[in-house]
Design a protein around this nucleic acid. Structure first.
Lengths: 341, 341
DNA sequence: CTGTTAGCGCATTCAG
DNA sequence: CTGAATGCGCTAACAG
């Protein structure tokens, strides 16, 4: 800011110094009264708080961050916020971190690693105390930068061999296999797939295919449509499958939203679910237990993931620097049978 | 930070000064090359960018904010992120602001003005360049603080007589009336309501009631359940109405998610929609046009609201300080008839 | 077009 | 338990 315009300060926002003056103490005492109340005498603290109220003082956290090298900021990156299976995770995570005094910086990557990389570059400028990424697929540049800066990092909603730092998720391969075994057990032999172009969804799909090898009638028809997942995607996907005569006995969907669209299309054509066409979802976004017709799905405990991430970050913050306890948490999933698949 | 530990600097993150040294220019030139490239000669800029890459420099935005009094941060407050009718708005807003170089600070208020107030207090510490609030219901303290700090502010998803600053939304009273007139026109005389305890939803409900006066058979039974809106809320709401014999011919719901739950409960009891029971939604969260059975609903253009907010903020940022163009934007809504109500 | 100077508001270190 | 001194990394203003 350099020079000030000459003249008296004209009703600018109050600073620590203003509060100190009003309270009759030194600025540092105000800082302590606010940041570590237990280290200041009761009388002093009271006078300071009174002065804070009188002045309407709000600490400037940019100045605080600069001086202390701690931003109390956590960056959360996710593909999209709309209709998202991550929203429960974000909700739980945000609430937990807010309770611990951390604020949330939101980044939307649109399933695009390059966009994630650009966002990351911008967000690193805030020197967040922690970063949460969705998935484990990042550009090489992102990976290197993250490893270099050493900010506590959680990759979520997936597992992988070599995470950058901490990891909280589940195996999408295991999901694909579980679904395959379930379908085989139910006696289905003609299977199809409708999904969006999302890396984790595609991995679930590929594992499904692999586990179905030899059990089902090949080929498994698939409709992979552009993100984001909507009801319209499901309708369109099933419409195309039916047009090709390729829907088979059961349609596996990349998410519950897509599954709802598939079911809507099926019902509007007079198909009964699951008698004429079974449908399988993922994510429990639509609370399969409350859907009609009932939808079998793979339930992922979003809030649990959010809490686990928060605990991991807070634990890391509390560690003596350099300790870096690793973390690989598989939260698993649950296949919910509701008669439709 | 005060004193440094004695000794040589040990591979700390590079600063502007490091870049300047490598590029052989002064620090301010680096600052300009990055922040206002057009004001620096091509040759210099090139050398600086080379030095930036070589050092892996990432500008410290806390320092930048402190020096320039501009944080390039926009705070967005919403009740909840899970299953939210605001998500499209947030998505559009976040993307637009990101494109303009602003980052998003996320605050979840849980429909509670007191929580909003606490969050606001914390967020003001970041000196955001803009603030976006959902709705127009705030504590008196919030209102006063916001008016005092003078940060560009948009209240969204509602209209009111005396906004703190800018306003982008629509009239929930008008929605209630529109729904009432629609139902009256369709000949319905026995109406019920299922909703959550959300201020705007309740206002839609009250306006509906008022506009229905004299047309429908009183009383209008209502099930008001605790937030957040889920399918389960809808199921439970209808179950209770049916138990009381109070569902009538049509159930109006506070959101599409609730409506989906109502429909699921109805279908699972063998009720046909809309012949046995009509259902009316709100928000077009579930893309009524793609639902089966088809759901009549009130469509609100979430992305449009998001874009309008972004434009309003960016315009305000560009204004000479003190101009403060007011803004009252009614984006309206659209009643979509899909045969179910 | 580039450099010099002077802080932005706060927290850390050390001394009382 | 409280205070004084110092600088975190950057940019606004002015001068060349």
């Amino acid at each position: 800011m350099g020079r000030k315009p000459a003249g008296i300060r004209t009703s600018t926002v109050p600073t620590l110094i203003d509060v100190a003056r009003v309270a009759g103490v030194s600025p540092i005492t105000v800082s302590r009264a606010l940041g570590r109340p237990e280290v200041v005498s009761d009388a002093t603290r009271k006078r300071v708080l009174e002065a804070v109220r009188a002045t309407g003082y709000v600490p400037n956290l940019a100045a605080g961050s600069l001086a202390s090298s701690r931003s109390r900021l956590v960056a959360i990156f996710l593909p999209t916020i709309a209709n998202s299976i991550f929203s429960d995770t974000v909700q739980a995570l945000t609430e937990r971190m807010a309770a611990a005094g951390y604020q949330t910086l939101l980044g939307l990557t649109g399933y695009r690693p390059e966009q994630e990389e650009a966002l990351l570059e911008a967000v690193l400028g805030r020197r967040p105390d922690g970063i949460v990424l969705t998935g484990t697929e990042h550009t090489q540049a992102s990976r290197e930068r993250l490893a270099r800066v050493g900010i506590p990092l959680v990759e979520a909603w997936d597992l992988c061999e070599h995470p950058v730092d901490m990891l909280v998720g589940f195996s999408h391969e295991a999901v694909g296999q579980a679904v395959a075994h379930y379908l085989i057990g139910k006696g289905y032999r003609r299977v199809s797939f409708v999904g969006i172009d999302d890396p984790r969804g595609l991995r679930r799909y590929r594992s499904l295919l692999q586990a179905l090898q030899g059990w089902v009638q090949a080929p498994v028809a698939a409709q992979i449509l552009p993100a984001p997942a909507t009801l319209a995607i499901g309708r369109q996907g099933l419409a195309r499958l039916l047009q090709d005569g390729a829907a088979g006995e059961v349609v596996v969907c990349s998410s519950d939203t897509v599954a709802q669209g598939v079911m809507a299309e099926a019902l509007s054509r007079g198909l009964r679910i699951p008698e004429d066409l079974a449908v399988m979802g993922f994510g429990d976004l639509s609370s399969a237990a409350h859907t009609h017709p009932p939808l079998s799905t793979v339930r992922v405990d979003g809030p649990r993931i959010g809490c686990a991430i928060a605990e991991a970050l807070l634990a890391r913050f509390a560690e003596p620097a350099g300790a870096r306890q690793p973390l690989r948490l598989d939260v698993g999933f649950e296949l919910i049978e509701r008669g439709s698949a």
